[in-house]
Amino acid sequence: MRIALISDIHGNDIALETVLKDMKSAGGIDQIICLGDVANLGPDPCSVVARLRDVNCPCVLGNHDAFLFDRDLIHQYTEVDYIIEAVDWCRDQLTQDDIDWMGDFHRVLEVLMDKAGSLIAFHGSPLSHMDNILSRTPDAEVDRLIQGLNGEILACGHTHIQMLRQHRGRLIINPGSVGLPFREFLIRNTPQLMDHAEYAIITSENGTLGVESRRVFLDKRAMFEAAKASSNPMRAWLMEEYS
Rank of each mutant, 00 (worst) to 15 (best):
N189R: 15
A66Y: 07
P175F: 08
P43K: 00
F67Q: 03
Q147V: 12
H10E: 06
C156R: 05
N56D: 15
A226H: 08
R170A: 02
G36T: 01
H75V: 14
E110R: 13
T208P: 09
S177H: 04
R51F: 10
L52T: 09
A50I: 08
L41C: 08
D70K: 05
D22L: 07
I33P: 01
I14M: 07
H129F: 12
S204D: 08
R107S: 13
H158D: 10
L94S: 00
V111H: 02
L119V: 01
N232W: 14
L134S: 01
I99L: 03
I187A: 13
L238H: 09
R91H: 06
P43E: 01
L180P: 04
A50M: 08
A155P: 02
W237F: 15
D54M: 14
D44K: 11
C156Y: 04
L193N: 00
S230W: 10
I187V: 15
D30P: 09
I173V: 08
I202G: 06
T95G: 00
E212F: 13
L52V: 11
H129N: 14
H123M: 06
A140Q: 14
F69N: 03
N132I: 14
M163L: 06
P43A: 05
M163Q: 04
A200H: 06
Q147S: 12
C57H: 05
K24D: 11
A116L: 09
L209I: 09
I172S: 00
V80F: 12
L164M: 15
I133R: 01
H123L: 09
A121V: 00
H123I: 10
Y242Q: 00
H158W: 09
F105Y: 09
R51A: 10
L109Q: 03
K220D: 11
I9T: 00
P138V: 02
A15F: 10
D98G: 03
A236W: 15
L41I: 07
V178P: 12
R221F: 11
